[in-house]
Write a protein that binds this DNA or RNA. Structure first.
Lengths: 206, 206
DNA sequence: TAGATTGTTAATCGATTAACAATC
DNA sequence: TAGATTGTTAATCGATTAACAATC
C-alpha cells in the first residue's frame, strides 16, 4: 500500500524550502545533530508552527520530544527538491562575464551551465559562449534542462526553447512568459520597482 | 477632510503592480485610450475581480460602464509606485560587466546606478567601478538609495550599508538579510532550486 | 516518570473571487 | 433608455497560527 497522498506544497512553502535547505546545510557543516522547530523558526523569521507544517511532509526526521535530526532531514529535503538531479542549463543574452558570474552561482546548487548564447559571441569564446544562430542545433545535440533568459533575439521565440527540449525557464526579461513548461517570471525592473515602492512606504510617503 | 485611509497593499498586489505598470505603459505607447478590467485581466492571467480590487485604490481612472482611462491610470500608478522618484543605486560585488548590464536594466525604470564596488576594481575603471575600501567615504559624499548586493567583502557588514544611508537592498547573496530598512532577499541559488523543484513536479516526480 | 517537542487538528486570518447594485 | 463595466460587498478559499494530545 502506498503512503498517503501528499498534498501539493503551497507557493509560500516552495519559496521557503530553499531557505530550510541552506540553513540545514549550514548546521550539517557545523556538525550539529539536532534542531528544533523553534530554532529553525527564529533563524528563518517564521513561526515554529509554520516550520512544523512545512517539514511535516518530509516524514521521518521529526521525533516528538526531541526535534529534528539534521542529517536525515537535509537528505530528505534535498531529495524532494531534486537537489541531486544534476540539471544542465544555458544562459541566453547578457555578456560572457555576466554568464560566468551566474554560472558560478548555479553550480553551487548542482546546476551546470553548458553554454552562453549571445548575439556577439566571438570565435575564441567558444565553446562556452556561442552565437544565437547555433542555439537550436546545439540544444539538439546536447539536451539542457534550464534556460536563464536575460534577453531573446528577434530570431528566436520562447516556444523555440520549449521545442528544443528546455524544461524550465527563469525569465529575467521585461516581458512575462506563459508557456506549458514551468516559468519563473522575475523581470529585474519589476523587482527594483517593488523595492522602490517598499522604500517609499517605509519612508511614510505612501 | 482627508480622503479615507488606504489600507496597505497586500504582498501579492505589490508584486502585481509593476506588471500593470508595464502593460499600461505599452498601451499608452500604442495610443490606446481605454482598457477594461477584463482586458487587463486576460493579459496578466488574473481575474477581472483581482484587477478591479487592485486598481481600486488608484481612484479616479475607473469609470463605471466605460472601463479605465489608460493615461490617468498610468500616471496615478506611477505616482503611487514612486516611478518618478529618480532613485540612485550602487552595485556591490560581481564584475564591471555584470554591473553595467544590471545598470542598464535599472535605468530603464528610472533608477540610476552611480557606482559599482568590487574587490578588484582597477584605477582606469574609476569613477564607475571603485574598490570596496572607498565605499563608506564615497557614500558619505554621494548619498545613494538602493544597494544591489551580489557579494559583500569581509570588511563590510550589511549594517554598514544602513549606516551609510542606503534605504533599500536587493540582496542576491546566499545569506538572508534582516535589517531595519526594506530588503528583498532573492538568492540566485534559491530561485534556481525552486525552478528545479517545479520542473520535478511538472515531470511528475514529486 | 517528567520534560520536551513533534504531528495534527481546529481556529483565525487574510486574500481572492463571485455577484450585483450603482452609474456612466 | 439599454448596455456595459466599475466599485464594493459578501462568500469562498486557502494559508497561517494556536493549541494540545501523542509520544519520544
Amino acid at each position: 500500500m502506498e503512503k498517503k497522498a501528499e498534498k501539493a506544497a503551497s507557493a509560500g512553502a516552495v519559496r521557503r524550502y530553499p531557505r530550510y535547505f541552506r540553513y540545514l546545510r549550514e548546521l550539517l557543516m557545523n556538525g550539529v545533530l539536532r534542531v528544533s522547530s523553534s530554532e529553525l523558526a527564529s533563524r528563518l523569521s517564521v513561526t515554529p508552527s509554520q516550520v512544523r507544517s512545512d517539514l511535516n511532509r518530509f516524514a521521518g526526521a521529526g521525533i516528538q520530544g526531541y526535534g529534528y535530526q539534521v542529517k536525515p532531514l537535509y537528505t530528505e529535503l534535498s531529495r524532494k527538491l531534486g537537489a541531486g538531479d544534476k540539471r544542465s542549463a544555458v544562459i541566453l543574452g547578457g555578456n560572457r562575464f555576466v554568464a560566468e558570474e551566474l554560472a558560478g552561482k548555479l553550480e553551487g546548487r548542482g546546476v551546470f551551465v553548458r553554454h552562453h548564447f549571445s548575439s556577439d559571441a566571438t570565435e575564441e569564446e567558444a565553446p562556452f559562449s556561442l552565437p544565437f544562430s547555433v542555439l537550436k542545433e546545439t540544444l539538439a545535440e546536447e539536451r539542457c534542462d534550464l534556460a536563464l533568459l536575460l534577453s531573446l533575439p528577434d530570431t528566436l521565440t520562447p516556444e523555440d526553447l520549449v521545442a528544443a527540449g528546455i524544461r524550465g525557464i527563469w525569465n529575467l526579461t521585461q516581458t512575462d512568459l506563459v508557456l506549458p513548461i514551468p516559468v519563473i517570471n522575475l523581470p529585474v525592473g519589476d523587482v527594483v520597482m517593488r523595492l522602490c515602492y517598499e522604500i517609499r512606504c517605509w519612508e511614510g510617503k505612501a
